[in-house]
Design a binder for these strands. Structure first.
Lengths: 150, 150
DNA sequence: GATTTCAGAAGAATGTAATTCTGTTTAAGT
DNA sequence: ACTTAAACAGAATTACATTCTTCTGAAATC
């Protein structure tokens, strides 16, 4: 189902998701109805997961990026801990990682101060959390969620 | 410029970016022309940065997430190294981090094997790279780029 | 090789939506 | 109160989305 035509459609949507269907159909050389049918199908099949607006974090006081490694208590219930972490505001990503059997979080806060507050008030207060290691980001060269689709 | 009405508009777009303007105008209680004007302005002011389609990585053989810490050579030219890393396919994020004065990368590959290939062929071959430490992700509990907008 | 079947595409029709423009209202600063 | 600029509504025009029917071509079946 991911043939050349769909690839072309997806590449267009990756560039600019809020583009009229009719414009897509022009660029891929299909009738609008055909494009619509293809997009609907990809949505239903879970190839397309949704459409997002990309906001400028700076304009919303979320300039500071940081990554936090979480070492859980030896007896911690890992899935529970994962859910607890995922529910905390401004924690954008929660990954369970190999090696140390811990979590890696990506967070976005206003500044290092609010980052520290989050650590102290929201994260280290969780019972299952044994210790943490924070990597603060000084500058970001690249940050996208666009995956390679060949 | 980021007032209550714009917040309402942005929240709607965060949920579902490919929503008709007319539908947004209904939900916020403004005329379609007013909503359009507000959105255009936010786009021009860089509050809205763009619109993206969210694809299912699994369907494009990009299931494996990993984070890679890069320790640069002491004499490395940091900006150059950052650009080199950012240009490599399947490296989605390149952050320059405090503490070790290194980079943290987020990558998406097919599996651990292709991850290993990338490391050996694309990353460790760069002169300025002294050493690396890879954190492979076993499972992801949460992964979003949606920032909190209060 | 003929025939059947079916997914995908086109095209037309209809109902909506996007966009532009104008005039009015609102709010802020003087 | 007066001025100025920004924001909004409403109408009109243009374009688009969506549905439905028909058609085509490629594979499967006989």
């Amino acid at each position: 189902m991911i043939d050349k035509k769909n690839m072309k459609i997806l590449k267009i949507l990756q560039e600019k998701a809020r583009i009229p269907n009719a414009e897509v159909s022009r660029q891929v050389g299909l009738a609008p109805s055909a494009v619509l049918e293809r997009i609907r199908k990809m949505e239903n099949q879970g190839i397309i997961d949704g459409y997002e607006v990309r906001l400028n974090p700076e304009r919303f006081s979320r300039k500071q990026v940081a990554f936090i490694e979480i070492m859980p208590q030896p007896d911690a219930h890992i899935p529970d801990l994962g859910e607890k972490l995922a529910a905390i505001a401004d924690i954008l990503e929660v990954h369970y990682t190999a090696g140390n059997d811990g979590f890696l979080l990506k967070v976005r806060t206003t500044d290092t101060e609010t980052l520290g507050e989050m650590l102290q008030k929201k994260i280290t207060t969780i019972d299952e959390v044994l210790s943490t290691r924070t990597i603060t980001v000084l500058s970001t060269i690249k940050e996208t969620s666009r995956i390679t689709i060949d």
